[in-house]
Amino acid sequence: MRIQGTPGDTMLAAMKGVYIVAQTPFDADAGIDLASVDTLVDFYCRHGADGFTVLGVSGEAGKLTEAESLAVANRYIARAAGRPVIVGVSSPNLAQLSQLTAKVMDAGAAGVMIAPASGIRTDDELARYFDHVFTAIGDVPVVLQDFPGATNVGMSVPAILSLVERHPQIQAIKQEDLPSLNKITRLRQGGGRRVAILTGNNAMYLPLELARGVDGPMAGFSYPEMLSGVYRLHTQGDTDAANDLFERYLPLLRYEAMGFWGVAARKEVMRRRGAIRHATMRQPGPALTAEDHREIDALVARVEARLAEAA
């Protein structure tokens, strides 16, 4: 395994901006479409991505083989051309988690994202689990994912702050425990070592979460220029303009927030925008109906009309 040196020296400790949660493109037969990884990275970069998070929940990581996961991560790292790539490696199998971690770090990943394993019920169990994780992976920069909607594991603010102090490898938190706002405030006010906090949940609450102190979105959307635009306007102090921009996209953003069904809609919009060749979801997964396509037509037309009015 490649050792990264002192965790505090890594770029994750001060990460800011838009870290796009990237999709995994499949071809018409549900095989990995690496060529579409290239066009998707280029699409995200044109629209303001500062970095990428791959093999997350909405990236359908749970439907990939280990070899496919490595191939997808490597292609993103290569195409990102220096932009940091965070790779999701969460797994109940610590041997697989540590092996994938070692391989993607050797390939040039900026760090890995890890969520607690399902089944953890107490703070003591949580602490023991991450003791085992960091014994297995060593000195690798980590984004701690707080997403009980997917893991069924609740992490209290004191438990998260304890993990941050106990493990200097934890450089950032992906905070997507709803309701998120007060938890963000409590984490920011908790003292101790400062780590980056980025928000997920499809960026549904992005302006409010930026006001609470997050360092940017770690989310996906078929119009990533909204994510980067809202972030830039907010950091420039123009919160009214940031909210106006956010609201122009809100109906479509909300539509894409419906779990894996929303991911299917997002892929379809990105196919229409030329970012990927196919909108295929690997099974088990939803298939869009003719009525779904009509709804997407209307929502995209609404977004485009509101953008034209604003222009």
Rank of each mutant, 00 (worst) to 15 (best):
R2D: 06
V21N: 11
T24E: 02
F26K: 00
D29T: 09
D33W: 03
D33E: 10
V37L: 04
V37E: 02
Y44R: 05
G51L: 01
L64N: 04
A67L: 11
S69L: 12
A73C: 04
R75F: 11
Y76D: 08
A78T: 04
A80Q: 13
P84E: 10
P84R: 06
P84Q: 08
S90L: 00
P92I: 08
P92T: 10
P92D: 06
N93M: 03
T101N: 14
M105A: 06
D106N: 15
M113V: 07
A115C: 02
A115W: 01
T122C: 03
D124Y: 13
F134C: 01
D139C: 03
V140I: 05
V140W: 02
V140P: 00
Q145H: 15
F147C: 07
A150I: 15
T151W: 05
A159P: 02
A159D: 03
A172Q: 14
A172Y: 09
I173G: 00
I173A: 02
L178A: 13
P179A: 08
I184R: 09
I184L: 13
T185R: 15
L187W: 00
G191R: 05
G192Q: 07
R193N: 10
R194M: 09
I197Y: 08
L208W: 05
E209Q: 10
L210H: 07
D215L: 06
D215F: 09
G216F: 01
G216E: 00
Y223V: 12
E225F: 09
R232N: 07
L233A: 05
Q236H: 08
D244Q: 14
L250S: 11
P251Q: 12
R254M: 15
Y255G: 04
M258R: 14
V269W: 03
M270D: 00
R271V: 06
R272P: 01
I276G: 07
A279S: 15
M281A: 08
D292I: 11
D292E: 06
A301D: 11
L307H: 02
